[in-house]
Design a protein around this nucleic acid. Structure first.
Length: 136
RNA sequence: CCAGUCGGCUGGACGGCCGCUCCCUUGCGGGAGAGGAAAGUCCGGGCUCCAUGGAGACACGGCGCCGGAUAACGUCCGGCGGGGGCGACCCCAGGGAAAGCGCCACAGAAAGCAAACCGCCCGUCCUUGGACGGGUAAGGGUGAAAGGGUGCGGUAAGAGCGCACCGCGGACGCGGUAACGCGGACGGCACGGCAAGCCCCGCCGGGAGCAAAACCGAAUAGGGAUGACACGAAGCCGCCAGGAAACUGGUUUGGCUUCAGGCCCGUCUCCGGGUCGUCGUCCGGGUUGGUUGCUUGAGGCGUUCGGUGACGAACGUCCCAGAGGAAUGGCCGUCACGCGCAGGCUUUCGGGCCUGCGCCAUACAGAACCCGGCUUACAGGCCGACUGGCGAU
């Protein structure tokens, strides 16, 4: 049971997703692709937590460990700095990196992330059975 | 100055805003935070668990000139031998071929035990061609390799048959801890090569790894105790079912093996240990997850001493990442360096300098229990020692 949503919509920093089972579950949710990444999102059932959670996946295909680390850090920073991102507090998000996330300009990366989340929030796309409307 | 050999170091700096992990603190706040290879996971150890009861033999694997260093090594240091380079220096699968087996392709008459294809010489026959018998191994030819080489003597032709020098073997002597080096009586020459084919000799070695291992602990299966029942049982394969997996259950649906014992602990011997039916009840179990292991160590730095050196000793001083879908960063500014383009100046034609603009995780690359090595990757920069040229004094 979630408490009252924090006032002012200044969303708190999302938690990291760390457990394999969470990643597997999120993979069954809705999916949107961009040039630098693919984004998956799924509403959590039986929710004892509050606040959105975000995980990152960088596969070995994208490069060696130096490249993978850098990509993950850039994506993480884009999430952290994007305070106005319309993340839903009862959802889990997973960002799957692509190679372009390494060389793309950071501002463009942030824009892509915002657009991808908006797309997921669009009620027409919300096929996963989550009620889209959120007050404020 | 040019060319080269060897060794070592470095591999962005400063600042601003916003963050991450760990530690200290009641709190404000403060401190620390990737590499020389963190890489490949190729060797050697520490540590953990299992096995280890013992002993020996066998098997298997690794190493292989000598001496030293080291916790240890396949690493390092100093020598020796062989090969390459004008030289500094570099390279080496470098024990044993009279313990034994095996192999030596092609070519060649012949490839390891002595033989003879073309030849050469002598004798006999005969139509000067040639045939047969014998001697011989200098010459030709083949080959990676053909029973020493060159010269003289010698001879029917020849041959270590004889001699000289060289090569080879070599009792013994001297030097060296040793590998080995120097000398060498004597031997008329025999003992070809391959051990990276098997092998022999010497030395070393139990297995698996932090996803080790310990603790806390949802569900499923297993486990222990006890009671009842049963006496052919056990193991392997296959099939079916459950589980995310590890694994578990069923099998009169089938096949195979073993025997009153079977199977496992590398094999064998003596010997030891573990394990092996169904159902009920009770105890209890430990996978996902969490905590520990987790960073003070063959530790770093400095000085002195010993040693040719690898390295060792003493003293002083410091605490230096601990993540776990994995922190150590993101963005921006200035500068240095580099690269590209354009323009200008200069040149001993290799290049050098200046200005402007652009690019720039600056190269290779990211700790994952910890050490010692090896190997591989690496833009650019710096330092030292030495060698060979050319020039100047």
């Amino acid at each position: 049971m979630t408490g009252p949503a924090p006032e002012g919509c200044g969303s708190p920093q999302p938690d990291r997703l760390r457990i394999r089972a969470d990643f597997v579950r999120a993979a069954k949710g809705a999916r949107v692709t961009a040039r630098a990444f693919a984004l998956q999102a799924r509403k959590r059932e039986s929710d004892a937590l509050e606040g959105a959670r975000v995980g990152f996946t960088v596969t070995k295909k994208t490069g060696n460990s130096v490249v993978r680390n850098r990509i993950r850090r850039r994506l993480r920073e884009a999430v952290r700095l994007g305070k106005t991102l319309p993340l839903r507090p009862d959802h889990d998000y997973v960002l799957i990196a692509r190679r372009e996330a390494l060389s793309m300009e950071f501002r463009a990366l942030s824009r892509e992330l915002e657009r991808a989340i908006q797309k997921l929030n669009d009620p027409k796309r919300a096929a996963a059975g989550s009620r889209p409307a959120r007050p404020t």
